[in-house]
Structures are given as structure tokens and as C-alpha cells.
């Protein structure tokens, strides 16, 4: 009972956090801001997946979280490299 309530509260907090990230993603004003917002959105999605795993009492969300963690980092690194060098694979 306590757990169910706090899961719902945590879901609400994470949704709010992701909406704030989305606002920064749309608003900018600079490209690094947008990349940072996207990176944070990735990390918050991982948190949401972990939360979902506990809520649905299932272990299958873990692999998705792990893959997302890697994709998020690689995406951020690639975007930054592009901004710095104008190219990703040289």
C-alpha cells in the first residue's frame, strides 16, 4: 500500500521532471543546451523504466534501461563531437 502510493508519487515527479527537460529541449537557446536537455531526458527515462519495473513487478525492463544508458551516452558524445569538429567519424 505504502509502496504503491509512493510509486505513483514518484511517477508524477518523474513526469514533471521530463516535462521540464522537454521545455528546455524546445526552448534552447543554444545547441549545447538542447543536447544537455536530451541527455537528461535519457537519464530520466532510465529512472522511469526502473520505476516501471518495480510497478509491474517485472525484470524485463532492466535490459532496456541498460541499453538506454549506453545509447544516451553515445548520442551525447556524438553530438558534442559533431559540434566540436563538424564531423563524427573522421
Amino acid at each position: 500500500m505504502i509502496l504503491q502510493t509512493s510509486i505513483v508519487i514518484a511517477f508524477a515527479m518523474m513526469s514533471l521532471a521530463m516535462l521540464l527537460n522537454l521545455w528546455r529541449l524546445v526552448r534552447g537557446p543554444d545547441t549545447p543546451d538542447r543536447i544537455l536537455a536530451l541527455d537528461t531526458l535519457f537519464i530520466n527515462t532510465i529512472a522511469l523504466l526502473v520505476l516501471g519495473g518495480i510497478h509491474f513487478d517485472s525484470n524485463v525492463y532492466f535490459e532496456a534501461a541498460l541499453v538506454l544508458a549506453m545509447m544516451g551516452f553515445i548520442g551525447t558524445a556524438a553530438f558534442c563531437k559533431y559540434l566540436l569538429r563538424g564531423d563524427i567519424i573522421e
Binding site: 515527479m13 518523474m14 514533471l16 521532471a17 521530463m18 521540464l20 527537460n21 528546455r24 544537455l36 536537455a37 537528461t40 537519464i43 530520466n44 529512472a47
Partner: peptide, 8 residues
């Protein structure tokens, strides 16, 4: 997580 996003 929420505080980090508020900071953002």
C-alpha cells in the same frame, strides 16, 4: 531527478 531538471 526532479531537482536536477528544475535546475536545468
Amino acid at each position: 531527478a526532479l531537482i536536477g531538471s528544475i535546475g536545468l
